[in-house]
C-alpha cells in the first residue's frame, strides 16, 4: 500500500506546512514582530523567560494576531471539511457548505441583527441561529418531497436559500444607507478583521462537535459516493450517515460563517485541491482538506491585512487568489486520478 503510506506522509507534510504558515503569519502585519520575539512571547506563556520584547509587541501578538490566526485556521478548516463531506454524501462534486442554505440563513440573521443595531456578539449569535434554522427548514421540507432524497434536499436547499437571500436583499433595501447598509454589505463580503477571543470561544464548541464526527465517519463517506442503493447492499445505511453528516456540517458551517461572514469558494474548491493532492479516499482526503483549508484561509487573510492599508474583504480575495491557482491545478498535465 505504497500509495496509502505516501498519502499519510502528505497529510503530515500539510500539517507541518500549516505550522510554518502560522509562525510566519505571526510576524506579518503593519506592526512587524521578528521571529525571535514571536518565539520568546510564545514560550513565555508556558515557561518563564526574561522579557526582551516590548509590551506593545506582546499586546499585538496575543490580543490581535493570535485570535485572528486561530480563527482563520478554524474557519478555513471547517468550511472545507463541510464541503468535502457534502460532496461525498450528495454524490456531487459541485456540492458546497452552503448547498442546504446555511450561508443564506446566516446572512439573513446577521442582516437582521445589524438592522436592529445589535452588538457584534448579537450579530454572531443571530447569524448562527438563523443558519441552523434554515437548514432544519430545508431538511423538513425535503422529507415531504416525493422521490429521491438527495434531489429533494438539494432542491429544498436552493428554494429556501433563495428565499432567505431575497429577505436579506429586502433588509438591505430598508436599512439605513449611512451606517447599516455598509455594515451589512461588508459582513456579506466576509472578514476576520474584528476577530476577538470571544468569537473563538463562541465558535469552537459547535466546530468541534461537528468536526469530530466528520473525521470519524470519513471511511463511510467513501461508500456513500457509490450511491445509496450500493451503499445499502454493502451494509451502510446511507440516509442515516447523510443525516449525521448534515448535522455536523451545518454546525461547522454555521459557526464559521457567523464569526467570519460570507466566505465563498473555500468550501467548494479546497476539497478539490485536496482531492488533487491525496486522491478521493476520504481516509486521507478529510484531514488533508481540513489542513489545506486552514492554510489557504490563513494565507488569504495575511494578504487581506497586509496588501493595502485598508483591509480587503476575504470573500473577494479568496476568489482572486483561489481562481488562478485552481485553474492551474485542473489544467496542469499529470495523471487524472
Amino acid at each position: 500500500m505504497e500509495r496509502g503510506r505516501g498519502n499519510t506522509f502528505t497529510v503530515i507534510g500539510l500539517g507541518v506546512l500549516l505550522v510554518i504558515t502560522i509562525i510566519v503569519s505571526f510576524q506579518l502585519g503593519r506592526y512587524p514582530i521578528p521571529a525571535k520575539e514571536v518565539l520568546g512571547i510564545s514560550l513565555s506563556r508556558i515557561y518563564p523567560i526574561e522579557q526582551f520584547w516590548t509590551d506593545r509587541m506582546e499586546m499585538v501578538l496575543l490580543n490581535i494576531r493570535l485570535p485572528r490566526i486561530i480563527l482563520a485556521c478554524l474557519v478555513g478548516g471547517c468550511l472545507s471539511a463541510a464541503g468535502t463531506a457534502y460532496q461525498g454524501v450528495f454524490q456531487n462534486p459541485m456540492a458546497a457548505p452552503d448547498i442546504l442554505g446555511a450561508s443564506a440563513g446566516a446572512a439573513f440573521g446577521a442582516a437582521l441583527a445589524i438592522l436592529n443595531y445589535g452588538s457584534s456578539f448579537t450579530i454572531t449569535v443571530s447569524a448562527f441561529s438563523f443558519s441552523l434554522l434554515t437548514v432544519s427548514l430545508v431538511y423538513f421540507i425535503s422529507k415531504r418531497v416525493k422521490g429521491k432524497s438527495i434531489l429533494g434536499l438539494i432542491l429544498s436547499g436552493i428554494v429556501v436559500g433563495s428565499l432567505f437571500s431575497a429577505a436579506t436583499s429586502f433588509i438591505k433595501l430598508v436599512a439605513d444607507p449611512t451606517d447599516q447598509l455598509p455594515a451589512i454589505t461588508y459582513w456579506l463580503m466576509g472578514s476576520l478583521a474584528g476577530a476577538k477571543s470571544g468569537d473563538i470561544k463562541f465558535a469552537i464548541i459547535p466546530m468541534t462537535i461537528g468536526l469530530v464526527p466528520l473525521l470519524l465517519l470519513r471511511w463511510r463517506m467513501n461508500v456513500l459516493t457509490m450511491g445509496d442503493d450500493e451503499a445499502r447492499t454493502m451494509g451502510i445505511n446511507a440516509n442515516q450517515i447523510r443525516f449525521i453528516v448534515i448535522i455536523c456540517s451545518t454546525l461547522t458551517t454555521a459557526a464559521s460563517v457567523s464569526v467570519s461572514g460570507m466566505i465563498g469558494w473555500v468550501g467548494l474548491v479546497i476539497p478539490h485541491v485536496a482531492r488533487k493532492v491525496v486522491g478521493n479516499n476520504y481516509n486521507h482526503l478529510m484531514p488533508a482538506s481540513i489542513l489545506c483549508g486552514a492554510i489557504f484561509l490563513l494565507l488569504v487573510d495575511n494578504v487581506s491585512r497586509n496588501l493595502l492599508t485598508t483591509e480587503i474583504p476575504l470573500g473577494i480575495l479568496t476568489a482572486f487568489i483561489g481562481a488562478p491557482f485552481f485553474i492551474y491545478l485542473i489544467t496542469r498535465r499529470g495523471e487524472d486520478f
Partner: peptide, 25 residues
C-alpha cells in the same frame, strides 16, 4: 462513480460492513 477511486480502495469498500462505523478497514 462521482469520484474515481483506486481499484484497491474500491474493493476495500466491500469490507465496510465488517468494521465499526467510526473506524476504517
Amino acid at each position: 462513480p462521482s469520484f474515481n477511486y483506486s481499484v484497491f480502495d474500491m474493493v476495500l469498500m466491500g469490507t465496510s460492513v465488517h468494521v465499526s462505523a467510526i473506524s476504517t478497514p
